[in-house]
Amino acid sequence: MADQTAKAVRSQTEKAALALLRERALLVGEAATARHERDQLAEALRQATDHYSTRYAAAVAGGWTADDLARLGLDAPESSSPRRRRPPRPATEPESAGEQGVQAGEQGVGL
């Protein structure tokens, strides 16, 4: 390595770093593609589930009972598609005026 110039060492190091970054970029690209495919399939499933629910309800409205349909291998559709719930917010209570005064007084002690 003593025979190489500083410019050559720098160039080799940069090329090696770029190769590593390309590998990492490919990995994140593949993950993005997989997420996109997942989202498309989830939407297709939601649409198919909605369609099945509508057709099942039409069969019931047409005189079939849930038991009849179950015997024919048609399970009752889920009541609703699962939805994400927002995590509860932490409760924040306003401080009372008396507590604020005590805190302000404590800050002034020792000055």
Rank of each mutant, 00 (worst) to 15 (best):
T65H: 08
E78C: 00
T13Q: 02
S81W: 10
S53W: 01
P88T: 04
P94L: 07
E14I: 05
Q47K: 15
V109D: 06
E95S: 14
R46E: 01
T65M: 04
Y56R: 02
A34K: 09
D75A: 12
D3Q: 11
A97T: 13
A31F: 08
R46M: 00
G108T: 11
V28R: 14
L21N: 02
L69P: 00
Q103K: 15
T33C: 13
A70H: 11
A57G: 06
T49M: 05
G73S: 02
R46S: 05
L26D: 07
D67W: 05
S11K: 09
A31H: 11
Q107Y: 04
R55N: 10
A57I: 03
E95M: 15
D68K: 06
Q103E: 14
S79N: 10
D3W: 09
D50I: 02
A70R: 15
E99R: 14
L111R: 15
A19V: 01
A17P: 00
Q40T: 08
L72W: 11
P88N: 02
L21Y: 02
T13S: 04
L72Q: 10
T5G: 04
S96D: 13
G110V: 00
E23L: 00
A58P: 01
L21Q: 07
D75S: 13
A76S: 02
A34Y: 08
M1W: 04
A61Q: 10
E14R: 02
L41V: 09
T13M: 01
A34N: 14
Q107T: 14
L111Y: 13
E78V: 01
A2T: 11
L72P: 04
D50A: 06
Q40D: 12
R24N: 06
E14V: 07
R24V: 05
A48S: 09
T49N: 07
E37W: 03
Q4F: 08
R35Y: 08
E99Q: 15
A34T: 13
D39G: 03
Q107R: 14
A61S: 12
A59S: 11
A91D: 14
Q4L: 10
Q12E: 03
A91C: 04
V109Q: 06
R83Q: 13
A57H: 09
S80Q: 10
L21G: 01
H36A: 08
G105I: 06
S81T: 05
G63Q: 07
A25T: 03
R24P: 01
E37Q: 14
Q100W: 13
G62V: 04
A6C: 04
R55Y: 11
R85I: 04
Q47S: 15
A91N: 10
D67T: 12
G110W: 05
S11N: 10
Q40H: 12
G73Q: 02
D3Y: 09
D50S: 09
A25F: 01
A76D: 05
L20M: 06
L27N: 11
T92H: 14
G29W: 01
K7M: 09
T92C: 10
R85F: 06
R71V: 07
L74H: 07
A34S: 11
D3T: 11
W64T: 08
P94G: 06
P77R: 05
A16C: 01
R35A: 09
A66N: 13
A58G: 05
V28K: 14
L26Q: 12
